[in-house]
């Protein structure tokens, strides 16, 4: 056979005759891994892609759970039972600091992944540490916010609205806390085990998780806090 492709019609006829279902038959005796996008002769996709996809599906299920809490908040927004409404809960400065902290932490998380791509242990750890600290600042601010509110008698048991508010914001804070624990584990693993493929895949998953949390926070600070202050 020649190096240049046959005329289109002849090529098509040949392909249809040999491979009618477009399976792209792979050499059954191929021993080495064939890297590709998962179509036919190029074999299953690279594990990095498959791991990312699987974690995406988990992330979407998590976002569906958050959407249930969002829906509950939206429905309960006026069920204040004579208690405080959303207007009394919003502290714009604190929300601004929380948003800034989480956004910056998302940025440093991306930078740590860039460091992982060049296999620099030092910079990966540095940026992961900064990410963790910013996340800690976020959680701390939220904790102090809840303590302040409780001091004013604003607790989840007061009304349906407050239950849904604390449920939504609290669930997000819980996710950030757990992600912080995962971050500590990842820092330890990178330190001890270096950049093995599994570790890099886990860092990819951690990146996805942390960024998804920031996306959820965008929804929260817009719908709960900003719309609450102005609506």
């Amino acid at each position: 056979m020649t190096d240049f492709p046959l005329p289109a019609a002849a090529e098509t006829v040949r392909r249809v005759r040999e491979d009618p279902n477009r399976l792209g038959h792979r050499d059954p005796h191929a021993r080495e891994e064939i890297e590709g996008a998962g179509h036919g002769t190029t074999g299953p996709a690279h594990r990095r892609i498959i791991v990312g996809y699987g974690f995406w599906i988990f992330l979407l299920s998590d976002i569906v759970m958050f959407s249930c809490f969002f829906a509950a908040f939206a429905v309960q927004r006026s069920a204040t039972a004579g208690g405080p409404g959303i207007g009394e809960l919003v502290d714009m400065h604190r929300v601004g600091w929380e948003t800034g902290a989480l956004l910056l932490s998302s940025y440093t998380c991306g930078l740590s992944f860039a460091a992982t791509n060049v296999r620099s242990k030092l910079w990966t750890q540095v940026f992961l540490l900064v990410t963790g600290l910013l996340g800690l600042i976020f959680v701390g601010l939220e904790l102090f916010e809840f303590i302040d509110l409780a001091g004013r008698g604003i607790v989840p048991q007061r009304s349906g609205f407050l239950t849904s508010f604390f449920g939504l914001v609290g669930l997000h804070g819980l996710h950030v806390t757990l992600a912080g624990m995962w971050l500590l584990t990842m820092m330890a693993q990178v330190q001890v085990k270096g950049f093995r493929p599994e570790i890099v895949h886990r860092l990819i998953c951690f990146n996805l998780f942390w960024h998804a949390l920031d996306i959820v926070w965008i929804g929260i600070f817009t719908i709960v806090y900003l719309m609450g202050a102005t609506g």
Binding site: G100, G110, A114
Partner: peptide
């Protein structure tokens, strides 16, 4: 896979746009 420059560029652009949108919202 191994290209850090792209990741840094995307992170910078993402941060820039996000900051603009966040500040605008506030």
């Amino acid at each position: 896979v191994e290209d850090a420059g792209h990741v840094i560029l995307n992170s910078n652009l993402g941060l820039g746009f996000s900051v603009i949108l966040t500040v605008a919202a506030f």
